[in-house]
Computed example of a mutant assay.
Amino acid sequence: MLGESPESGDEVKRLRKIYTEYLREGRWKYDSLGRQQLCKERSDAIETLIDEWFGRPLCECRVLDVGCGYGSQLRWFNERGVPPENLFGVDLLSAHIESARRRYPAFNLMQANAERLSFPNDSFDIIVAFTIFSSVFENEMAGNIASEMLRVLKKSGAILWYDLRYPSPTNRSVRAMTRRRISRLFPSTVIRLKSISLLPPLADSLGPTAAITYPLLAGIPFLRSHYLGLLTAAPGASDS
């Protein structure tokens, strides 16, 4: 693991403990039909978002996933043309990285604290930030991670954002990432977000009717649990 600031040491320990507990609980087993619909909706929306924004083929992109977990988002980009040598992932937990390496040995994966990324400035076209900041309670650590993301992001690039917009009544280890909080973390960016994803407990309850009922319920704005979107450089910025 790369070095961490002394101020964030307790927060790093807390995060490691929480995510280790998540692993033991099998929290990320998305077996329900409703959760499968949620994942499909998100995947389709990301594809549309990138197609509309990015002006060149994905095969030319370099992608970094901060908090890459088991590497599923990197796999998504690989399936859409990004070569393995252009796919990078970092995660705080060694267990996540070990599992991701077994699944995707050609990807560039490393255990690291995202407060200090070992990449040069302007290295990536796309940085994936999926449900990372909702887990980080310490403002200084969150600010350090955001600053590092912006440092290694090309001025023509974008942060692909997906995170909670509501607090979770069943998980006190996460907090809502409101538009105000996102703006405070990334004050120099243009932030384009939309609400998406049916509340997961509701999605899980849909059963065999999910293919029909999920789109209907997800069309109700206050039932959408997350924000999805892009954070890009402010107008006038250019690659160095």
Rank of each mutant, 00 (worst) to 15 (best):
A210C: 09
A211K: 15
L206P: 01
L150D: 11
I127A: 14
T209Y: 08
N121T: 03
Y166K: 14
A142H: 06
M110D: 13
S168Y: 00
R116Q: 14
R184K: 10
A210R: 00
M110G: 12
L199N: 02
L199S: 07
T209M: 12
N171P: 07
A142Y: 03
N108G: 02
E140N: 10
R172Q: 04
V128N: 07
K194R: 15
P208R: 03
R179G: 03
A112H: 11
R179K: 11
I182H: 11
D204K: 01
G157P: 00
R165A: 11
E140Y: 05
R165W: 09
S135I: 01
R179W: 01
T170G: 04
S156R: 13
T178W: 05
S188A: 15
P105N: 07
S173E: 02
T189A: 15
T170I: 09
R184N: 14
N108L: 04
T178I: 06
D163K: 04
A203H: 02
F107R: 09
I127Q: 11
T170D: 11
A114F: 10
K155P: 02
G207W: 00
S173V: 00
V190Q: 14
L109E: 02
L109C: 04
A129H: 05
W161I: 06
E115V: 00
I191S: 08
P167Y: 08
S195C: 11
S135Y: 04
A146W: 12
S147G: 14
E148S: 06
P208S: 10
A211S: 15
G157Y: 06
G157M: 07
P200M: 00
A106I: 02
G207N: 04
L202M: 07
S173A: 06
V152P: 01
G157S: 06
K194C: 11
S173Y: 02
A129T: 05
I182N: 10
N108T: 07
S123G: 05
T131S: 08
F130E: 15
S135V: 06
G143W: 03
S135T: 12
S188D: 15
I127K: 08
T178F: 03
R116V: 14
R172S: 09
L206Q: 03
D204W: 00
D163R: 00
K154H: 09
P187T: 08
R175T: 05
I145A: 10
L160F: 13
L202R: 01
A210I: 02
L185P: 07
A210S: 09
R184G: 12
K155D: 09
R172H: 04
K194T: 14
N171E: 10
E115C: 00
S118Q: 15
T209F: 13
N113F: 13
M110N: 12
P169I: 01
L185K: 06
I132N: 11
S197V: 08
S197K: 01
A203N: 00
I126H: 08
I145T: 04
N144H: 14
Q111A: 06
F124V: 06
N108K: 12
V190E: 14
N108R: 14
R175I: 10
K154V: 06
